[in-house]
């Protein structure tokens, strides 16, 4: 019995190594990148596989940075064709790409994602401004013209109009793209509205960034892990806490959670789409031009993604929580994408 197992095992291994070498020419697209874009890219990929003759693309959720790193690693079937990103590609990443022979990249802007501050429906809604948000969550805040460690323990210490509740905010860890965007849009926005920090921004931009981008570590801000569903569950259990996550999770859990208006704007689909909600970021994907023609279906995928049936206001991606670009911009991006226009930084 043992001998047959052994021979079988050897045979299987040999057979597999042989097939592995013949299967190198790739039939399906490979997409990597942001976990925020993942739900949208996968929806497009699935439909693409079912309605065209092409195989369903394989979409990996690696995070924006990890995805662009893989994307920029080189040209050839061993490297991905598309990288999703919840932020724009950095100049350093472009030069890294170029260093590995990935010279021509096509940028496709796909829509917006709102970042919401939400709490349980069991409590009253609490409208906030970016300034209040900054004062509640920054590690160092200006008090009487000096930067001190954040002294605020309760919301009403920041502003008497706010309730006398302990500050407790659950949010994503620094590895998350949502955290990057929140810090950049909400915290920096709030910091800019304070005159002392505004002056600092002019004098010493680096120091300003450090102050604006550092969240407090004394327990008022809790890093709750990458899983947004976990934050949703924790908010349900603790009505005094607030959570920071992507709009699609608020959209799905509207019976349990309510969004806080930021600067008097509710985190709602239409308001984020119109650009009036202050904490929203742009989502992108990047296409490797060198792979057009070598991997089947690349251009068709881009066309499928940029069809109004997908990314339009009534498209299926809107049902998944993607907030569409304005009509004129959609037309522009679609044209550039179809023409495979090179990225310009």
């Amino acid at each position: 019995m043992l001998k047959t197992t052994l021979t079988m095992a050897t045979l299987i291994t040999v057979a597999m190594t042989c097939t592995a070498n013949t299967a190198m020419a790739r039939e399906q697209l490979r997409i990597v990148g942001s976990s925020t874009v993942f739900p949208f890219a996968t929806a497009v990929a699935e439909r693409f596989g079912k309605t065209t003759g092409f195989k369903t693309p394989v979409v990996e959720s690696t995070g924006s940075g990890g995805g662009l790193k893989l994307f920029c690693a080189g040209i050839g079937t061993g490297h991905p064709d598309i990288a999703n990103a919840s932020r724009r590609i950095k100049a350093s990443e472009v030069s890294r790409c170029a260093g590995n022979g990935v010279e021509n990249i096509v940028e496709v802007k796909i829509g917006f994602d709102g970042i919401v501050l939400a709490s349980s429906r069991k409590t009253h809604q609490m409208p906030l401004t970016l300034k209040q948000l900054f004062l509640a969550l920054a590690r160092d805040v200006p008090v009487d013209g000096k930067l001190v460690a954040n002294p605020f323990k309760a919301w009403n210490e920041i502003d008497p109009s706010l309730p006398a509740k302990k500050i407790e905010v659950l949010g994503p860890p620094p590895t998350s793209g949502t955290r990057d965007a929140f810090v950049e849009l909400a915290m920096e926005g709030g910091a800019k509205s304070i005159p002392m920090l505004k002056a600092m921004r002019k004098a010493d931009k680096k120091r300003f960034k450090a102050v604006a981008h550092t969240l407090r570590e004394d327990g008022a801000f809790v890093e709750a892990g990458e899983n947004d569903n976990l934050i949703v569950q924790k908010l349900e259990a603790n009505p005094d806490a607030f959570g920071i996550f992507g709009f699609s999770f608020l959209d799905q859990n509207g019976d349990k959670l309510q969004g806080s208006p930021i600067g008097n704007v509710m985190p709602e689909f239409e308001l984020i789409a119109a650009g009036s909600y202050p904490i929203s970021r742009t989502l992108y994907f990047y296409v490797k031009k060198a792979h057009v023609g070598t991997v089947p279906g690349l251009q068709d995928y881009v066309a499928a993604f940029t069809a109004d049936q997908a990314w339009g206001p009534d498209g299926y991606l809107a049902d998944k929580g993607l907030i569409p670009l304005p009509a004129a911009e959609r037309a522009k991006v679609r044209k550039q994408a179809a023409a495979l226009a090179n990225l310009s930084m």
Binding site: T19, A41, G49, E60
Partner: peptide, 12 residues
Amino acid sequence: VAFIVDIPTGPT
């Protein structure tokens, strides 16, 4: 760790 719709038919 990827989104894969098609059911795999072989080890590659």
